[in-house]
Each structure stands twice: as C-alpha cells, then as structure tokens.
Amino acid sequence: MIGPLIKGLTITFKYIFKKKFTVQYPEERRELPPRAKWLHILQRHEDGKERCVACMLCASACPTEAIYIVGEENDLENPISHGERYAKVWDLDLGRCMFCGYCVEACPEEALAMTDEYELAVPTRKDLVLHKEDLLVEPGTPPVKTWLGFYRKEPIGAMPVTRPMEVHVEYEEYLKRRGPREAHE
C-alpha cells in the first residue's frame, strides 16, 4: 500500500518544482500565430479613405452567408472610397461566421483583414451583428497583413488602387453620354 502511495507522491512533488504550465489568462496571454483568424476589420487607405468598394465578393465567398452589404455610388466631390462605390451597410453576423477566412481571401482590395481579437462575448443576440462602425479602423491605423500579404512579395498596403480618381471624371462623362438610366436596367 505504501509503495504506490510513495510512487504517486513522487510524481506530485516532482511537478511542484517544475515551471508552471497554466497560462494566467486575463493577465498573461499566449502569443497567437501570425495567421490567427479572429475578429474581422475593415481597413483604410493611407489617406483615410475606405478600402472597401462594395464589390460583394466577400459576401459571395462566405459559406455561411454571414456578410450583408449594401453598396452605394460614391459622391464624386467627396468620395468615401477610391472606387465607384462604397459600402453603405457592411454587417457581419458573428452568430453565423465560422472564422474560415474565405472572405479575406476573396477581397481584392485588401479591405478585409482578420485580427487576433478573440474576446468577443456579448450579452444579447442583437449584439452579435457587428456593423460597419464597429469594424472600420480609425484613419492612420497601420495595415494588417491579409492573405494576399502572406503570398505576395510587395510590402503590405502596396496593393494598387483599382480605380484612380481620374476614372471618376471619365465615368461622369460616360454617365452624361449615356443619359438617364432606363427603367428596365
């Protein structure tokens, strides 16, 4: 009887003097790997304009239909993004999202990125839907590496703007040429 007891206690005492295995979570956090896929953010260009051009590719790529976008055409004098359109509504339903990252892979503008923010608990189901205001970063925030960033050679944020501002002028002329939109269009 004594033998097994001593054997067991030896193991116990051996572990007392070893380094503590437990992570003291709220005070001490484990470093996440660089590709950790947690809360999404919507990034901005260096000049503060939004990167998202409401192309809906992320919403189409999403396997759980967690993203809801309503795009609107930019005001030509005071555009919100560098493209023709910007996202008026950009909602993400965390109740559906499974953090697969397909939306980030699909985004051609490097607008969407995933951060290592995993503390996401909310008290009601309504709070699970995050809106654009919650996800959009402040102007001047350094860019986060996206999927494209991992596979490309250029530095992050060097992705060319798809539609430079001059295009707006061309587009305006085109609109004038074309005339008002037909009802059936």
Partner: peptide, 13 residues
C-alpha cells in the same frame, strides 16, 4: 446570458 462567438471559440474566449 452570454454568447461566445467562434467556431470553436478559444479557451480564452
């Protein structure tokens, strides 16, 4: 009472 998002959430979450 509390919803913890994730698929699956980290133990920290």
């Amino acid at each position: 009472d509390v919803y913890v998002p994730g698929c699956p959430p980290r133990p920290e979450s």
